[in-house]
Design a protein around this nucleic acid. Sequence first.
DNA 1: AAGTGGTCTAGACCACTGA
DNA 2: CAGTGGTCTAGACCACTTT
Lengths: 243, 243
Amino acid sequence: MGESSRRASRSLPARIAEEVETRISSGQWPPGSRLPSEPALAEEFDVSRATVRSALRSLAAAGVVRTRHGNGTFVSEHGGAIRASLQSLRSTSGLIRAQGHEFEIVYGTRRLRAATEAEASHLRRSSLPAVLEYERAFVGGTSALAYESGVLAADLLPAGTDPGALTGSIFEFLEPLGALPDQSVTHVRSTYDPGLAWGRGAPEVPLYLTLEQVQFLPDGTAVSWSTTHFVQDHFDFTLIRSA
Amino acid sequence: MGESSRRASRSLPARIAEEVETRISSGQWPPGSRLPSEPALAEEFDVSRATVRSALRSLAAAGVVRTRHGNGTFVSEHGGAIRASLQSLRSTSGLIRAQGHEFEIVYGTRRLRAATEAEASHLRRSSLPAVLEYERAFVGGTSALAYESGVLAADLLPAGTDPGALTGSIFEFLEPLGALPDQSVTHVRSTYDPGLAWGRGAPEVPLYLTLEQVQFLPDGTAVSWSTTHFVQDHFDFTLIRSA
DNA sequence: AAGTGGTCTAGACCACTGA
DNA sequence: CAGTGGTCTAGACCACTTT
């Protein structure tokens, strides 16, 4: 039961999923083992079975557990490589960090300029006066990890924004503006281009996994259009599919 | 088994999602428009609101619709490119067909042989006597679309299976054996290899998007380990992310 | 204030698995 | 057979957006 009003910023299923995941990664519930039944979990966490099922559903979609009808819910044998799943793609910085890389962001171009028609179209604007164009490299140690170029819709930025204020992650740049994307559409392809690298640490083989991404605000406005080239062999991107 | 109605095998939410999608693609509910409210849909389809929400949740995950708290549910502006989403990845044949290609499957190698240690490991077997190894190309018109090589765990095949019986899609090969996978783990990378193509229609530029995939049965058994190289520029793979 | 989607509950019944 | 997950309902209340 709800008891009194406890401020719960995150949802009940999310918190239960986290607790289950903690027990799994702590080794309390090792890979291959069977979880307590749904009614048992519901009783332990003092929630309804529907809430437990919602938590387990998200864990199954993430590949952490596996349910078998009439049999039980089991910890996946391959929970390790799941962290950097493409499905959980948010920011480029987050994606690279999830792969276990230490890195530094080096910016090239940063400037406000008029938008092209292609940019207005990708950003779903009938008319768009300006964009903030940027170019940056993610460098880990002495070798480049990824190159990214993109544009931010300038109509979402306060008038007189200094492009030079874009120094770290774009996430951190947008957050104080209340312009955090919550949805994205990504196209995946491969790229082989010796002319793409710049700055220090260019890869020996110019082979990349390329993600082209448009990000959207909760109200459906497009925020950014970016293309990120991930240097091959530095990343292992995973996709999980459950029927 | 066989009772009165074995017909309604698909779930209520799945059928409602399909009906909603039909109305969207028919133009009855055009991109950007607002759907009827959840209570209204629940009444029309004569189901509970929870069932409607389940249907809308799957459509939102697929990028077909977009929900806005306190405002409504809207048809996405980018519903077109969603069909061949990587999230709905099932069979290679299905994935290529979803991209709108006509193709023919040309088999190279097909044989039963002892499994290597790496294969047993990828197929999660402590011991595995044999695998069915295959190699095939997907050819559309005069140009190759994709190359795939892989192994099927032979312990799932009837004794004395003829490897030559593998002619079309692997899906169709496995289905009568009751060995249809319902989960997969996929690794995504890019490949540049002039020596990879074979047969007719080899691409001019040997650049591929590569999906390495392990597929699992509902009971958790691994069925196959395969690597598919999709010729760049013939495919547009999409990923949708919703917070 | 009214209407929307978001969350959660309690319970019913079905379908499958394994002993 | 008992126990498991799978499906669905009816309803309550919350949080958000628009009028």
